[in-house]
Each structure stands twice: as structure tokens, then as C-alpha cells.
Simulated assay, not measured.
Amino acid sequence: MTTAPADLARSRSALLELPVELRFDSPDVGDGASLWRIARDSEVLDLNSPYSYLLWCRDFAATSAVARDPSGRPVGFVSGYRRPGAPGTLFVWQVAVDEALRGQGVAGALLDGLSAREARRQDGLRCLETTIERGNTASERLFASYAARHGASLTREVLFEPGHFPESDAHATEVLHRIALPGF
């Protein structure tokens, strides 16, 4: 089943909203350095090169989202992409929020806003995926609450073992969290 705009309209009230002083937007190349800093300052995300955040803001802006403060500065982001072999699946690469705004529902509101936007696309949205390192309870709670909020099933399976990484002793197991969306 594909999430359709009509499904979105029925459950609009279930979507989390950003705090009133923030606005939902798509990133642009000028946001790349800010997104890199937010990811770095999270101290839990795998930090990619600054160049990769610039490319992400250029090539995957349509499937990513930022929260902007009143001055227009990004204070949180969700980076994602449609899986090439599964166009109804949005893979969420990273979610990060400025430390001063953590615990205020910004990450959940960004996920809801991005999902709603993706559901309006021609191919809809059937599934949301992400990987989470074992022990990252904040991310586990974020995606579990997203699934519960949308009445979706959540399955987990190991996607990458430490041995898949070049420095296997430096990386934990990555668990794939797959959320099958019944419709907004």
C-alpha cells in the first residue's frame, strides 16, 4: 500500500509540529557547512567529510529537510534519499539537532514533515528505513515513537557487522530499522 495524499489529510493532526520559532525547509548548498557542524557537535553521528554534506545539500535536498531558526540558520536536519531499487522507500541517513534544541520534538517534527512531503510524491511512501548503532537509545526511541505515532510496524535486523567496515574494531553493528507505513 502506498501512502497517499488523502491518507495524509486524515492524520494531519497526528504529525508533530516544529516549535513555533522554527520553520521547515529543504537544505541548499549554503547549508552544508552548518549541517556538518551540527553532525559534528552531536558527538554520536558518524561524521562525514564537509564535502559530502555540500553534495548532500545539492543532490539530495528534495529528500532531506532542515529546521531553520528566525534568522534562517539551520538548527536541525534529516538527510535522506529514495532507495534506487525501492522508490517507495525513504532511507534516513542522519538526524541531528543543535544541542540547545534537543528534547523539544524537533527531530520528530522533521521526520514527520519530511515523510508528509515524500508521501505527496507520485510514487508515495511505503517504507522508512534507517540504521542505528546498537546502544544509541535516543535514535532508537525517535524511530520507535515515529512508528507508534503512525500506526506502523517496525522491524529490526542487523545490516552491517563491524567486519564490514575497514576498521572493524572502530565501528559498532548497524541495525536496520524498517518502518512499514500503512498510510498517514
Rank of each mutant, 00 (worst) to 15 (best):
A148E: 14
A33V: 11
R73Y: 01
G80F: 09
V106F: 04
T130M: 02
N48S: 13
S168A: 15
Y53D: 05
G72C: 03
Q94S: 11
L114Q: 13
Y81A: 12
P84A: 15
P27K: 10
V97R: 03
G72M: 04
H164K: 00
T63D: 11
P182A: 01
E133M: 08
G85E: 11
A109C: 09
E161N: 04
V44D: 03
L159F: 07
S153F: 02
P84V: 13
S115L: 02
F91W: 14
T130F: 02
S52N: 11
A65I: 09
P166Y: 02
P70Y: 00
W56Q: 11
F24T: 05
P87A: 14
G135L: 01
R58S: 08
R83C: 14
R12F: 05
L35A: 03
D123E: 14
S64W: 13
A86Q: 15
L101E: 07
G113N: 07
L47N: 01
G76F: 08
T130W: 02
R40D: 07
Y146M: 15
G103L: 07
L176V: 03
G163D: 15
A170R: 15
E118R: 04
W56S: 13
Q122E: 14
L125K: 12
L128E: 00
F143C: 11
G103W: 06
F24P: 08
T137S: 10
P5G: 03
T2D: 09
W56M: 14
Y146W: 15
